[in-house]
């Protein structure tokens, strides 16, 4: 028997694979659906204080190598989120990581306080979305000072453990990780999408995404994500949700060896369906069995010898 249980910020996960923010996760029932497909936990789509409009279509394009998205974080706001997430929590099928987003530091505090009222297991602070770039200038995740300020504000307004979602689009992600750790973060989620990038339709002579640019995810970014997690693990003591390009159980194990305790899976749902969670769990168990690993927690940070 292989034990895939992991403890993260004091919360028990029956396996380390969690749904990444922004994939399905719009309603309580869709989160439960992903748990039924085998996820050890789920992250909600990022919640805003007020209703937030997304971009026109096309918002997502993809091929066998990568996905490019500029969905624009559409959301119906805090009241709908409390309804839907509350419903999921009441059913109690798996731990919930509630992702929140805001354009202003003080709004982060307000959303954190409101979402904390329904008592999700963990709060994830999305300070790295490239899609809010145009409206608010540089994402908070790109400066040690801005990132730390958001964390301090949120910590004042909630007692829940918080994980800070970092952007890879910085010169030194480990430095940002250290800054948010010092500011009181309980965990790090890394990485958000890479870029942004642009795809052009040469017949139409125009970028394909309506937003022109979008964040890159999927298989192409896996090495970048693994390296980011490796660097962060070396720099901080708090645990990491390693996210980016994970498609298989073997990818998930690589991410854990780099230093992740939980592994986020998003774009893989495009390649293997929501069933990817059950499939990857099976693949992890097979590998553990062959390698004589009894507890998956043994392999966290294994490459850092």
């Amino acid at each position: 028997m292989v034990n895939l249980n992991v403890k993260f910020c004091g919360v028990d996960f029956k396996n380390p694979l969690v749904l990444a923010s922004g994939i399905l996760g719009v309603t309580g029932d869709s989160l439960r659906y992903v748990v039924q497909c085998g996820a050890g936990g789920v992250t909600s789509k990022s919640v805003w204080l007020k209703r937030h409009k997304g971009h026109p279509n096309p918002v997502i394009i993809a091929n066998e190598y990568y996905m490019l998205n500029a969905v624009g974080l559409p959301d119906a706001g805090i009241e709908k989120a409390k309804d839907e997430l509350g419903k999921f929590l009441k059913e109690g099928s798996a731990p919930l990581i509630a992702s929140i987003v805001a354009g202003k530091q003080s709004d982060f505090g307000d959303v954190a306080e409101e979402v904390s009222k329904i008592n999700p297991h963990i709060l994830e602070i999305n300070i790295s979305c490239p899609n809010v770039d145009d409206e608010f200038g540089k994402p908070f995740a790109c400066s040690t000072i801005d990132a730390a300020k958001v964390v301090e504000e949120v910590k004042k307004r909630t007692k829940l453990p918080i994980s800070v979602k970092l952007s890879p689009n910085v010169s030194n992600i480990a430095e940002i990780a250290k800054a948010v750790e010092s500011a009181g973060a309980d965990a790090i989620t890394a990485i958000n999408t890479v870029g942004p990038g642009m795809e052009i339709d040469i017949d139409m002579r125009t970028p394909v995404l309506a937003n022109r640019v979008g964040g890159l995810s999927g298989p192409a970014i896996k090495p970048l994500a693994i390296k980011a997690v490796f660097d962060i693990y070396k720099a901080v003591k708090i645990p990491i949700i390693g996210t980016g390009g994970v498609l298989t159980g073997r990818d998930a194990i690589a991410m854990m060896m780099a230093g992740a305790t939980l592994v986020g899976i998003g774009t893989a749902v495009y390649y293997r369906g929501a069933e990817v969670f059950g499939l990857a769990v099976k693949e992890m168990k097979e590998w553990c069995k062959n390698e004589g690993v009894k507890n998956i927690e043994e392999i966290i940070g294994a490459v850092h010898l």
């Binding site: 994939i23 399905l24 996760g25 719009v26 309603t27 309580g28 029932d29 869709s30 989160l31 439960r32 659906y33 992903v34 039924q36 789509k45 279509n57 918002v59 997502i60 993809a62 996905m67 998205n69 969905v71 559409p74 774009t267 749902v269 495009y270 369906g273 929501a274």
Partner: peptide
């Protein structure tokens, strides 16, 4: 929106799929 099961805009209640 996406048509391929990622954005979550088309999920039904009940099944969640």
């Amino acid at each position: 929106k996406c048509g391929f099961g990622i954005c979550g805009n088309c999920v039904n209640d009940g099944t969640g799929a």
